[in-house]
Design a protein around this nucleic acid. Sequence first.
DNA 1: CAGTACTTTAGAATCATTATAAATTACATC
DNA 2: GATGTAATTTATAATGATTCTAAAGTACTG
Lengths: 138, 138
Amino acid sequence: MNNNRDFIEKLRSSGLRPTKQRLEICKLLFDRKKTFHFTISDLSKILKKETIKKISLATIYNTVHSFKKKGYLKEISIDTEKTYFDTNTSNHHHFLDISTNELIDLKEDDVDNIKIKKNLPGKKIRSIEVLVKIENNN
Amino acid sequence: MNNNRDFIEKLRSSGLRPTKQRLEICKLLFDRKKTFHFTISDLSKILKKETIKKISLATIYNTVHSFKKKGYLKEISIDTEKTYFDTNTSNHHHFLDISTNELIDLKEDDVDNIKIKKNLPGKKIRSIEVLVKIENNN
DNA sequence: CAGTACTTTAGAATCATTATAAATTACATC
DNA sequence: GATGTAATTTATAATGATTCTAAAGTACTG
Ligand SMILES: [Mn+2]
Ligand SMILES: [Mn+2]
Ligand SMILES: [Zn+2]
Ligand SMILES: [Zn+2]
């Protein structure tokens, strides 16, 4: 879906030099059909497997944080034990499967419009996000 | 609303000895009208102010975790920077005021019934929780 | 190519949390 | 009320994820 040229462009256009390391990480994170939810540790393990030359852990942290700062990743609070990042940076809802610990995006249409009846004077709503915990049926 | 006798009973009935330290912390956490959302650091600061004899940080951690295990507290994922606990242990929704960083419980009635249209085969819903971020109006 | 700012890196520092193990306390039994 | 035992508290050390540092390497500009 995305090729290297696209990523080089994407990085350059946001003032980040397209280094080998950043391009590897872009390919891994953004060259997918479905949203990717990951921890630094997940990412680190995958990179270790799939990459010829080792990328240092500091670089992985640096890259993820600069991608977050540029708006290419979103940090999400799902689990108090782990810090997750999300390649879907829009406001959106999640299924969290507590049997498998898998996190799945819900589409706009998957959740009926949510109406908040309470409102606080002087305050307006910035975002609404739903976390639906699911588990095995039996 | 609650007096010491109630807390002693509550602790005993769940197999926890009613120590001075636990009773202090009970009073601080549970003797309130409104839900209390806090971090260990918040709790620690308040205890430092309001308590004659110092309660060690290890005890604060131990107590909060045993209260959580007994179901008197719930750990919530709101912010990736901080770990919050909640004296409201039911499934419920929150306002997070990003102008003041204040966390407020929403009542059942404050949010219209949420309908999840998608369902995964073999999975059932365990809980649905909404986080509504609000901010100053202007 | 040369100069410069940006980036990567290994390793050190930080800090929240957990573990350890000794001293203290709660409580059952006498 | 004294005694024995297990639970609890405590100071302190250990852990582990994340951030910092500063030196070496790289990308880009002219
Ligand atoms: Mn925890
Ligand atoms: Mn972070
Ligand atoms: Zn997502
Ligand atoms: Zn709450």
